[in-house]
Structures are given as structure tokens and as C-alpha cells.
């Protein structure tokens, strides 16, 4: 065995080992990266929001805030979570509509409509809001959130944003 032959054969084995190692390494690393990043990629960049169908607008009486509750299912991987959400639809006239979140702006309890007083009252720390959601008294720092909505073919849709 000549010396030059010996060396080139050794180098050949080294190179082949390097190539095989790189191929195997990449073959595992690339899928692994995709595997870990998958939920981040699939959930997309924007926050979660959805148009909720509230049915025909005329079902909601004029003049009184009407509560509407709905449950949302979320699937995160193998886990399903249910969240119950509520809002109030207030029709002031045939054309004028307001949709208010029922989440108190203080610490997030759910407010209730008190017909006798004409106020939203939060049971947690006695936050009080008027019909339009403005703060009358108590700790809430700002009015109830107004939700975006649209009316299509006489049906009311509300844009619900998670969190």
C-alpha cells in the first residue's frame, strides 16, 4: 500500500463520514425545528377574534339592554376549553344599536342589568354603570367596552375579541 493511497483513502472515509453526519444531522434537526415551532406558526399572528351571530335584530326589544350569552370552544392541541361570554344588546331605536361587553372594567366580573334602577351593577365591588356603559360610581376606571357589530340581512353580528 503506497503512502499516497493510504492518505487519500483515509481522507475519503473522513469526508464520507462528514457528509453522512451532516445529512443525518440535518434530516433530524430541520423536522425537529418545524415540530417545535408548529403551534406558533399555525395559530397565526393576529389575536383571536370572531364574528358571533346573534340572530335577527328585531328579536331585541327597543329601549332595554338585552343580555346575550354564548359559549366558545377552543381547541389547543389535545385540550378543549369552553368559555362563557356575555354581552348586552341595546336598541335605542330602529336604526340605533349599541353592543356592550358585560365584563366590568374594574377587575373583570360580569355586570348585570338592573331594570328597576336602569343601571348595570357589578356584584364584586359595586361598580355602577348607566345604560350606555358610562361609569356612575364605584371603582371601575372606564366605561364598559363597546363591541364592533354589523347587520347583515337583518341579522346582528358582533365582533368578539378574546382577552
Amino acid at each position: 500500500m503506497g503512502k499516497s493511497h493510504e492518505v487519500s483513502r483515509r481522507d475519503f472515509v473522513k469526508i464520507m463520514t462528514g457528509v453522512a453526519g451532516t445529512v443525518i444531522g440535518a434530516g433530524i434537526t430541520l423536522p425537529a425545528v418545524g415540530y417545535v415551532l408548529d403551534p406558533a406558526i399555525k395559530s397565526g399572528g393576529s389575536g383571536k377574534e370572531d364574528w358571533i351571530d346573534l340572530g335577527p335584530l328585531e328579536n331585541y326589544p327597543i329601549g332595554e339592554p338585552t343580555p346575550f350569552n354564548f359559549t366558545r370552544t377552543q381547541i389547543n392541541g389535545w385540550e378543549k376549553t369552553f368559555s362563557t361570554n356575555g354581552l348586552f344588546v341595546l336598541r335605542k331605536s330602529d336604526t340605533e344599536v349599541e353592543v356592550l361587553s358585560n365584563v366590568c372594567t374594574h377587575l373583570g366580573c360580569r355586570v348585570a342589568w338592573h331594570e328597576d334602577k336602569g343601571e348595570f351593577i357589578c356584584p364584586c365591588h359595586d361598580g355602577v354603570f348607566d345604560e350606555d356603559g358610562n361609569v356612575i360610581s364605584g371603582p371601575p376606571p372606564r366605561p364598559l367596552d363597546h363591541l364592533e357589530f354589523k347587520v347583515e340581512d337583518g341579522n346582528l353580528f358582533v365582533l368578539f375579541k378574546e382577552g
Partner: peptide, 28 residues
């Protein structure tokens, strides 16, 4: 381990998720 959950409620489902829900889960 990134996705597997060792509880009777979730172990099976988490493996189903690895197999069908996650990119390259079947490969890993």
C-alpha cells in the same frame, strides 16, 4: 416531551395530537 402529557386524561390525546396535529410529529 414538548407535547406529551403524562396524565390519564391527556396521555392518549396528546399522542394523537403528536401523530396528526404537529408537523413532523409522526417522524419524531
Amino acid at each position: 416531551l414538548v407535547y406529551y402529557t403524562p396524565s390519564p386524561d391527556h396521555a392518549y390525546d396528546s399522542i394523537q395530537y403528536i401523530m396528526n396535529g404537529v408537523a413532523f410529529g409522526w417522524l419524531i
